Structures are given as C-alpha cells and as structure tokens.
Simulated scan of single mutants.
Amino acid sequence: MAGRVKRKAGLAAAEALALRAADPMTCALCHRPIGTQVEWHHRVPKSEGGRETVPVHPICHRTIHASATNAELAGPLADLDTLREVPAVAKFVKWVADKPADFRVPVRRAR
C-alpha cells in the first residue's frame, strides 16, 4: 500500500519524560524541538536496506516522502544536508521554522 507510514511505539511515559528533560529531542530535518508526536525516518529506506533512523515531526516526515522517491532517498538524498537543498524541502523548512512543535497541516505531493 503506497504512502503508508508505520510509527514506532513510543517510549514508556517515564522514559520519555526523563529523556526529554535530559536532552530535548530535535527534528533531524527542521531542527525544531520535537513535540508530543515523533516519527522515525529511515535515512535510507528499509526497502533499500536502510537501518538508521532519525527523529522527525510528522509534517516533516510527510514532506520528505512527498519530495523524493525511495530511490532518491537511498542515493544522494540520504544525507539530510543534501535533502534540505532540494527546492521544495528548503522552502518547507524556511516556512515551518516559526511554527509550534505540534503544528499540523496536510502535505501534498508536488505535481
């Protein structure tokens, strides 16, 4: 099923609070603090053999997958700095910079 995103189970509440108090998590794409929801993005898609994950906001995760194919994410765009240089992603990161951590809107794939 295309476009389906699986979310990893969250940490136990006590663990999450301790982790957040010690070192607040930030989004790997936009560098804003993570709010109440976190999704884990495979830098190289699992279908391409990737294992490493990074925390991202749900809206950032959808933007990544709306802006690049799995083949592109497995190649040069596996590097997040390079991914941020993609015009659609760069525009998104600039736009979302002043939004609250739990900000949500629908994300559409570019035509």
Rank of each mutant, 00 (worst) to 15 (best):
A71P: 01
I59E: 01
P55Q: 12
A90T: 04
A97F: 09
R108F: 15
E15W: 10
T82K: 15
A68Y: 06
R7M: 07
M1C: 14
R4L: 11
V54D: 03
A97Q: 01
R43A: 08
V38L: 10
I34N: 05
A71W: 00
K91V: 12
K8V: 14
P87M: 02
A66V: 06
A101R: 03
V5K: 09
P106C: 03
P58W: 04
H61L: 11
H65P: 03
D23E: 15
H65Q: 01
P76A: 15
K46A: 15
D23A: 09
I59Q: 04
A97K: 05
L73S: 09
P33K: 10
A68W: 13
C27M: 07
V105N: 07
P55H: 07
D79P: 03
V96S: 01
R111V: 15
L77W: 00
K99R: 14
Q37M: 07
A110D: 14
M25P: 11
A16S: 08
T69N: 04
P33T: 00
R109Y: 13
L19S: 15
V89L: 01
W95A: 14
A13H: 06
I34D: 00
I34W: 12
R109T: 15
H57I: 00
G75W: 09
A14M: 08
A68V: 09
E85W: 06
P45M: 00
V5Y: 08
L17Y: 10
L80M: 14
R43F: 12
V107T: 07
E85I: 01
T26L: 07
A18S: 07
G35I: 13
T53E: 12
P100F: 02
P55G: 05
H42Q: 04
S67E: 04
T53L: 13
H31V: 07
V5D: 09
A16Y: 13
A28Q: 11
K91E: 13
T53M: 11
W40R: 08
N70L: 05
F103E: 03
A90H: 06
C30I: 02
C30E: 11
L11Y: 15
L73R: 10
R84Q: 06
L83M: 11
F92V: 03
F103M: 04
G75I: 00
V38Y: 09
N70T: 03
A28W: 12
I34P: 01
G10D: 15
D98E: 06
F103V: 00
V89Y: 01
A16D: 08
M1P: 11
A66F: 09
A71Y: 01
R84Y: 03
H42D: 10
S67Y: 02
K46Y: 15
T53P: 06
T53D: 03
H31N: 10
G49R: 01
R20S: 14
E52T: 13
P87G: 04
R62T: 12
L80Y: 15
L77A: 08
R51W: 11
L77F: 10
V93G: 03
A9S: 15
V89H: 00
A97S: 10
G50M: 08
R20L: 05
